[in-house]
Computed example of a mutant assay.
Amino acid sequence: MSDSAISADLDAPPESGPRLVLVTTPIGNLGDMTPRAWDVLREADAIACEDTRTTRRLLEQGGVTDKRLIACHDHNETASAAGIVKLIEDGATVALVSDAGTPAISDPGYRVVQAALKAGLTVSAAPGVSSVIMALSISGLPTDRFSFLGFPPRKSGKRQALFELYGELAASLVVMESPQRLAECLADARAVLGDRRAALSLELTKRFERVWRGTLSELEARLADPPKGEAVIVIAGADEVREKKNKYAAFSKAPKRD
């Protein structure tokens, strides 16, 4: 492909026509809002959002003040999806956003996408920053394979069952958690998985961004005072644990000096 063809592809505008577009919004730093995301929001006929107040404040930052906002959250998503599909069928382009990050990824949006696809409508996205990918990339743990577990169950027994289910995977595990349950989540992970290496990311892209690395017990010990904001935990996969055990086993079997 020629340089001019590559340039033309990079400069191509988003596809036009009636469609649903999932737009990723910043997880803390407004500078992470992409030019394409702003373009989609400005051109959309309506914007479906998790919280109209949060989205209105974001839109004001980009000078977008004349858009119809449609509430689409956990409690009304199915009903809202039907209305969004009808709008698109009538010729509208609808942008879908959550309060922060990517719609449908541990946020409302899945049912809207499902309904739009079932109706044969076009679904696309204007991607952007991701707390999951950011936390994984800076964790210092293997990134070639990972499993995203989302927000684990609130109760300890169900949390431990989740870690049991994924504990033998040869992949790093990525978990999102609220500050109120963070210590308990780390304790349950350690009880099931053992004291694996892990990284805890807090306030990503914000002023007080912190990343703690160590074993699960070491991270747990640092939580004397619950931090603010949602956290992302990355835990070493079973393959790394097995490698370490095999290394020590081989060392212990080595011939000893007289």
Rank of each mutant, 00 (worst) to 15 (best):
D3A: 15
S4I: 12
S4T: 11
A8W: 04
D9M: 07
D9R: 07
L10P: 12
A12S: 12
A12M: 07
P13Q: 02
P14H: 11
E15L: 11
E15I: 13
E15A: 10
S16P: 01
R19D: 11
T24S: 13
T25F: 01
P26C: 05
G28L: 04
L30I: 08
A37G: 14
D39V: 05
V40Y: 02
E43M: 13
A46E: 00
E50K: 06
E50G: 11
T54C: 04
T55V: 08
R56F: 06
R57A: 13
L59V: 07
E60F: 03
E60S: 11
T65M: 15
D66Q: 05
K67W: 06
K67L: 11
A71E: 14
C72Y: 03
H73S: 05
N76A: 07
E77I: 07
T78F: 09
T78I: 14
S80E: 00
A82C: 08
G83C: 14
L87R: 14
L87W: 06
G91R: 06
G91C: 05
A92Q: 13
V94I: 02
L96H: 06
L96F: 08
S98M: 02
A100G: 14
D107G: 07
P108V: 03
P108D: 08
G109H: 05
Y110R: 11
Y110M: 13
V112S: 00
Q114S: 05
L117N: 15
S124D: 10
A125D: 03
A125W: 03
S131T: 13
A135C: 09
A135F: 07
L136S: 03
L136G: 02
I138M: 12
G140H: 14
L141T: 02
T143V: 14
R145N: 12
F146V: 02
F146M: 01
L149I: 01
F151D: 15
P153Y: 05
P153V: 04
P153N: 09
R154V: 02
S156Q: 06
G157M: 08
R159F: 02
F163W: 11
E168Q: 13
L169Q: 15
A171E: 11
V175D: 01
M176S: 02
E177C: 09
S178Y: 15
Q180G: 10
L182G: 00
A183I: 10
E184H: 06
E184G: 12
A187H: 06
D188G: 12
A189M: 06
R190A: 14
A191P: 09
A191R: 09
A191Y: 02
R196H: 12
R197A: 12
L200N: 03
S201Q: 01
S201D: 00
E203R: 08
L204S: 00
T205F: 00
R207F: 09
R210D: 09
V211P: 09
V211M: 06
V211I: 07
T215M: 06
L216R: 03
L216Q: 00
L216G: 07
L219N: 03
E220W: 03
A221D: 11
R222L: 12
R222V: 10
D225R: 11
P226A: 13
A231Y: 04
V232Q: 02
I233H: 04
I235R: 01
A236W: 06
G237Y: 05
G237K: 04
R242I: 13
E243D: 15
Y248S: 08
A249H: 15
A249E: 15
A250C: 08
F251N: 10
S252E: 13
S252G: 05
P255Y: 14
K256A: 15
D258Y: 03
